[in-house]
Design a protein around this nucleic acid. Sequence first.
DNA 1: AGATCCGATAAATCGTGCTTATGACTGGGG
DNA 2: CCCCAGTCATAAGCACGATTTATCGGATCT
Lengths: 296, 296
Amino acid sequence: MEMREIEIFLTLAEELHFGRAAARLHLTQARVSQVIARQERQIGGLLFDRSNRRQVRLTPLGRQLCADLRPVHTHLRDSLERARLAARGKTARLRVGMMPFNVPDLHHYWEGFRSRHPEWELQIRRAPYVEPFERLRDGDMDVFVTWLPVDEPDLTTGPVLFHDPRVLAVAADHELAGRSQISVEALGDFGHAMPPAMPDFWEDGYLSFYTPRGREIERIESATNADELIHLVITGEIVHPFPSHVTRYWSMSHVQFVPIPEMGTIPYGLVWRRDTENELIRALARTVRDIGALHF
Amino acid sequence: MEMREIEIFLTLAEELHFGRAAARLHLTQARVSQVIARQERQIGGLLFDRSNRRQVRLTPLGRQLCADLRPVHTHLRDSLERARLAARGKTARLRVGMMPFNVPDLHHYWEGFRSRHPEWELQIRRAPYVEPFERLRDGDMDVFVTWLPVDEPDLTTGPVLFHDPRVLAVAADHELAGRSQISVEALGDFGHAMPPAMPDFWEDGYLSFYTPRGREIERIESATNADELIHLVITGEIVHPFPSHVTRYWSMSHVQFVPIPEMGTIPYGLVWRRDTENELIRALARTVRDIGALHF
DNA sequence: AGATCCGATAAATCGTGCTTATGACTGGGG
DNA sequence: CCCCAGTCATAAGCACGATTTATCGGATCT
């Protein structure tokens, strides 16, 4: 059995749905069906129970094979990763995820880490807007750069990278455009958008659900990534209280940024899984602490 | 990287020779070269050092990858084997190797084992004539049925299956054909053949190197399997002192079997690796002891 | 019954695993 | 010194299997 087929098997074992498994693998449902059928022929027994069209389930045989094959798959991935790193003179890798507009301002930290630990590879990658903590939990990334506080029992909050004042993004022809500043209370006058399915405390840390006087700050749209967000701003459907450093990322004539001094600053820091903390993560936290938090 | 490619890599890592690795994999040398080149491109570093055409060697990178990938490969094989067994209601497998002409007479033992332990799968397979002990050591089979004594420090000798008188196989038109019996001394008058590279004590246990009067019993040919051996007998080039049970396996009009009472009987027994002895092997040995040795 | 969802199957297409043929380089022997 | 044998690399072509598209059959829900 080839590795690709094992991946198909393991994905189906997770999804328990031929169509979804196929989608995750960027394959057609037909292919998944064929591969599983072939595996069952080779093994000599059914791996999945799909008799009553109700719900696909693993048979005991399939469950055993899945338990056996999953470590094989991860070991292979790890081995290849290790070899690729070793070929570049690195012994380990740290994957840091962050929102794209953070990237330019955090160079110091990453360069600091790289020069202190040339034997380790630091990968900076773009984190998704939706369910980013899941990426930490799945092991897709090791450290996540986000606003604080983050209050999840299985995650550790590390040092703060920077404190950033808030600016409200509005369309160039918006009624607020050109203002020199704006109050928090005024945020309740306009529609907002946030990614779906965020933990409440986390969403609240970014933008309160209520104004100081108790009016609701309404979420009228949901946006799954930063581009969607800024697009909604440009079209005038929403306004959005970004941290100020986005002004160095987007400088489009169609958007204007109005300071919200009353909101104070928002802290951005490191977050990682408590139970996979390792020497690399600690070294990154140490580096950030040594350099100290930036103030924009 | 697919499993097939991993196999190619691991085989080359063992053989350290593109041509031989290809032969073992039933591939062409070109294919091995291509696969390794591709792997090195994907990894981003050389896996083998073949600069000076002297001798292919693993680079440190290749050595590391090899150490990482070998367990992946064996775990995969084991997992699939386990699944195949589980599909047939078995939990473990015992592979017994023997010379093909032993097969018909040993049914009792195998059936005894199977009825005592229906949850275990007993596979009877044909063992090669050349370097059979290596197959035990490589883990290709678990137990080997052979004549005794076997005197290797890493192998355990188990119970005897049967004691068998000797018969000399000669061509139908051979000068000895039709004799009612023959002396050991007379064996020195004819050419013999044995597999190459046998341990001396083992070869001697089957056919002494000298007659009682001290004449050499000459090996004039080497045969790598039983068919080659009987072919040499038929063509009259050699004679061969088989154990008598082969008369139930070959009964060709071109061969005659002449008893050699003076040689006595030769014992056949179980042999296995001391350090991989397990519950299945012990159960087989117990079964054989309980049934007792056969006398032909 | 009709609509819908889901997995199996058949047929068609496309990619790649593998071969054959050849080249390039090295070391040894006359 | 040149040729030859041995060995790995490269190029081109083929054939099979990986994958897709299209369709079917069975179950469930309204």
